[in-house]
Amino acid sequence: MSSTTPPPVRVAVVEDQPLFRSMLQRTLGETPGIDVVAAVATAGEAARVLRPGFADVAVLDIDLPDGNGIALGVTLRRSQPRLGVLLLSAHDAMDLLLDLPRDVAAGWGYLSKTSSTSEEVLVAAVRAAAVGETVLDPELLARVTPRAGSAVSRLTDRQYEVLRLLASGLSNAGIGHKLGITEKSVQNHVNALYATLGIDADPSRNPRVSAALRLLEETGPAV
């Protein structure tokens, strides 16, 4: 009898701090449905290990001793278009996602090492990256506000709240649970915010990714 259980998400961790690398390896390795297939400390090691088909997601520290995690991610994605990338940094460098080349911009996430990111958020970000979605650090998103005159500033308070939760990696069901509203209501808010932001149903681009990147582009630190 064939099993309906999907294959595990294969994750490679690239992190030079031994304690943090061990924590990531343990947390993800103990999560059902996730296999940590490599845990290395440098960009050079990652380039040797991460051959096409080896992993589904690469968790990359931005600051590596022999290179830059973003540049490494771009190189890997150019040869492995389906590889998800989750960036980690000790600094608030979330805006760097806006500078990614368009051909590799989907399927990247960003979490700060210094925020109160939970294991649940980490795992959700890895799973999202595996299916080509973009997840942004929820604590960092809570600190920003829409820029005056931007499309994001024209959203209602509830639409903006839904957009932040969407960009944090929550599904419509998860957003509904968080806000105490029905999943149908969430979908209505999502459709309305897509219309305000001018996000269409282009099949070549994931609208949730486009919405997350627009949020990042059109917000700034709260004053």
Rank of each mutant, 00 (worst) to 15 (best):
Q80S: 14
L28E: 06
T27M: 12
D61P: 08
E45D: 13
I34Q: 05
F54T: 11
D66C: 12
I70Q: 09
R48W: 05
D61C: 08
E30D: 14
N68Y: 04
A58I: 09
A41S: 15
A46C: 06
E30R: 13
L72H: 07
V49C: 02
L50F: 05
G29F: 03
A39H: 06
P52L: 08
I34H: 00
G29H: 00
L64F: 09
R48P: 01
P81H: 13
L64M: 09
D35W: 07
A38E: 14
L83H: 09
V59Q: 08
A41Y: 04
D66K: 13
V40L: 13
P65M: 13
S79G: 14
V57G: 07
A71E: 15
G33A: 07
G53R: 10
I70R: 05
A47K: 07
R82Q: 14
P81A: 12
T27E: 12
V37Y: 09
D66I: 12
G53P: 04
I70H: 01
A55N: 02
T75V: 06
R82S: 14
I62T: 09
D61R: 12
G33F: 12
R48T: 08
R82F: 06
G44V: 01
V36C: 03
D66H: 13
A71C: 00
L60A: 05
T27C: 05
V40S: 02
I70N: 01
T27Q: 13
A46N: 07
L72I: 03
V57T: 09
T42F: 08
R82C: 04
G73C: 08
D61G: 02
G29W: 03
N68D: 15
G53I: 12
L64Y: 09
A38S: 14
V49T: 15
I62E: 10
S79I: 10
T31R: 00
R82G: 11
R51P: 02
E45T: 02
V49N: 02
G53V: 07
V40D: 01
T27S: 08
A55K: 00
G73N: 04
V59P: 04
A71M: 07
V57S: 07
L76E: 05
R77T: 04
R77S: 10
V57M: 11
